[in-house]
Design a protein around this nucleic acid. Structure first.
Lengths: 222, 222
DNA sequence: CCAAAAGTGTTACGATTACACCCATGT
DNA sequence: ACATGGGTGTAATCGTAACACTTTTGG
């Protein structure tokens, strides 16, 4: 340890305040033709009013990312998903009882690949369309959700998210709907198709999706 | 308190791990014709090897933003600056002695408006060109610096940063240099000038900067 | 008077947008 | 057969990038 680090250590230990830290995860998935977000009702109890993002306390031997992954798996059975840090929330009164600092992540899942398994303390899990959130959302989680959507919206411009959100075979319309949901606006169908196909990462499987007029082809990642 | 919140409180208190939290601030400023970052040597001591971002421990009654603002003021005398959250670092071994979680911010300052005042525990403060960082940087602060530059670079595309970084009167060349420094690439002079003037937020003060061939005009924000 | 930097406008190119018809399938 | 949605190409527009000469000032 260098001197500087030694002194810095003193700096930290002298100011001995320590803080509970939690992670909350905004999980997005494409379901029933819409972009949705997963919310939970936690624990059994007489009043189960509020929906919450899945989340939990950081433990001694965990990184934030590790904690988020573990917590999500324990509560919902989901694993191996795409994660991204959104923001930290540190307002003094975010939690009614004690000071809690929360790091929010967002995750993208393809619900088809991630069957839900209710964790012990989980009363219920439900997917909500992002423009039809329930009115009863606990703590400041509505703010976390809104911020996560903003981050997602910004990231879609540069990053491709189809792989994470969509089933392995999908029609171009389904892909377009995901984009429109995230961006919150309508896109021109021809221009969208052209742009996506120019990326040269999708291929036409030759199969058509049945039950839909027009007979759209399924596409998959190359 | 609702039932849900009550239960969540149990959730948090049961897992009783609490963690020291610090904020570190990557302060950028335009100085000597270059974009620079401010680093400190902390505390007196025989060995003063490592440069560090200014930073300090979160206290009980502070938000992260509040803490960052206060810490920066105490260490360097700087106040009233533009802040933005970058990222949280939570690797287990970031700090040699104890578990410390760090939230990194970046700040933009106009050095002309913010005279430096060395704080008590500060041995020295120095501005480093972002492509000439010292080799001895403590902890994982090199990583924090690199991430902050990336965030800054991304933000310049949508946000205007001249006001924060530049003196009240500046030439368009100086403005261009800030952009080139942040982006890490050369820009076409005519296109840059055109774009900036089209924003319609700068005005030509009519004064010329002396000592420079060509006699460039000073501009200021409208 | 020479060198260095400031100031200025136009053209070419690429990317994005707008837009309409025919074909396939389900009902 | 009819209605719904799928598939496709082109022209217009906008924003970005490339580019050279004259003017001003310092040395």
């Amino acid at each position: 340890m260098t001197q500087t680090e030694h002194l810095n250590k003193l700096q930290v230990t002298k100011n001995s305040f320590e803080c509970s830290v939690t992670t909350d995860i905004a999980v997005f998935g494409y379901l029933d033709g819409e972009l949705k977000i997963m919310l939970c009702k936690r624990q059994v109890g007489t009043s189960r009013k509020n929906w919450l993002l899945p989340g939990g306390a950081l433990k001694k031997d965990e990184t934030l990312e590790g904690s988020a992954i573990k917590v999500l798996n324990i509560l919902t059975g989901i694993k191996d998903v795409y994660f991204e840090q959104v923001k930290v929330y540190s307002k003094l009164d975010r939690h009614p009882i004690k000071r809690v600092l929360t790091v929010c992540f967002y995750a993208l899942v393809n619900p088809e690949k991630h069957p839900l398994v209710l964790g012990e303390t989980v009363e219920g899990i439900k997917w909500f369309a992002i423009d039809q959130l329930p009115s009863s959302i606990g703590f400041d989680h509505r703010e976390l959700i809104m911020d996560s959507i903003l981050y997602l919206r910004n990231n879609i411009k540069t990053q491709l998210m189809a792989e994470e959100l969509l089933p392995s075979k999908f029609t171009l319309q389904e892909l377009q709907i995901v984009y429109e949901n995230i961006l919150g606006s309508k896109l021109d169908r021809r221009n969208f198709r052209k742009r996506m196909l120019q990326l040269d990462i999708f291929e036409n499987t030759g199969q058509k999706k049945l039950g839909i007029k027009g007979g759209p082809y399924f596409y998959s990642l190359k």
